[in-house]
Simulated scan of single mutants.
Amino acid sequence: MTLKLTDHFGADRRWCPPFDRAVAYEREDWWVGPSHCGDDPWYVQVLEGAAEVARVELDDLGEINPEHVGVPELDRDRLEIQRVEVAIAARGRGVGTGVVRALEERHADRRLFAYSDADSFWGSLGWDRFDPPRGERVATLFIQPVRE
């Protein structure tokens, strides 16, 4: 599978990325309004051939919640995967894994992390898991392992 990642940056929070509106996603609400992070939204459109197969929202630096158990200190080279979603028609073919691997390669000088309830997905990638404090209703933190 060959994936093409195209960055889209917005000038302000009201800007919406130029995604293909004909492609169906489970979480359409994520992609129709302005960004939820930062003053300069950063989206990535993922194409396989001419078809859009996934979307990503990145947050430059992002915020690490120090309340998660055992979280290591991450330098200013970190990059948060705020949201990632595979198009409904493209699911079950390894697109999600391909997208994350492409982001890892593309940002080899950065340490990626994500907050998510999709524990089995991030675990299958070999990312380190950090649980929230007991009783907290926040997502699990996953951090890309240190590259050797």
Rank of each mutant, 00 (worst) to 15 (best):
T2V: 10
L3H: 06
K4R: 15
D7E: 15
F9D: 03
W15F: 04
C16G: 04
P17V: 02
P18F: 02
F19V: 10
F19A: 12
D20Q: 06
D20I: 09
D20E: 13
D20H: 09
R21Y: 02
A22D: 13
V23A: 08
V23G: 03
V23H: 02
E26V: 14
E26I: 13
E28H: 14
E28N: 12
D29I: 13
D29E: 15
D29G: 13
W31K: 07
V32M: 10
G33S: 14
S35F: 01
H36C: 05
C37P: 00
C37K: 11
C37L: 07
G38H: 02
D39T: 12
D39C: 04
D39S: 13
D40W: 11
P41Y: 02
W42M: 01
V44Q: 15
Q45W: 06
L47V: 14
G49T: 01
G49C: 09
E52M: 14
V53E: 08
A54I: 12
L58E: 08
D59A: 12
L61V: 12
G62F: 00
G62V: 01
E63W: 05
E63D: 06
I64R: 04
E67M: 09
H68L: 08
V69Y: 02
V69W: 02
G70Q: 07
V71W: 06
P72D: 09
P72S: 06
D75Y: 04
L79E: 11
L79H: 03
L79V: 09
L79D: 08
E80R: 15
I81L: 14
I81K: 04
I81M: 14
Q82P: 00
Q82D: 08
E85H: 09
I88M: 07
I88K: 09
I88P: 00
A89V: 07
R91Q: 14
R91K: 11
R91M: 03
G92M: 00
V95L: 00
V95T: 14
G98D: 10
V99R: 10
V100G: 08
R101K: 14
R101D: 03
A102R: 08
L103F: 08
E104C: 14
E105H: 11
E105N: 05
R106H: 06
H107Q: 06
A108E: 07
A108D: 11
L112D: 03
Y115K: 00
S116C: 09
S116M: 06
D117E: 12
A118C: 02
A118I: 12
W122R: 03
W122Y: 15
G123N: 14
S124Q: 10
S124N: 10
S124T: 10
S124W: 10
G126L: 05
R129G: 00
F130V: 05
P133M: 04
P133V: 06
P133C: 00
G135C: 01
E136V: 11
R137M: 06
R137F: 05
V138A: 12
A139P: 06
L141V: 11
L141T: 02
F142V: 10
I143T: 10
I143N: 07
Q144I: 08
Q144E: 15
Q144W: 10
P145W: 11
P145N: 11
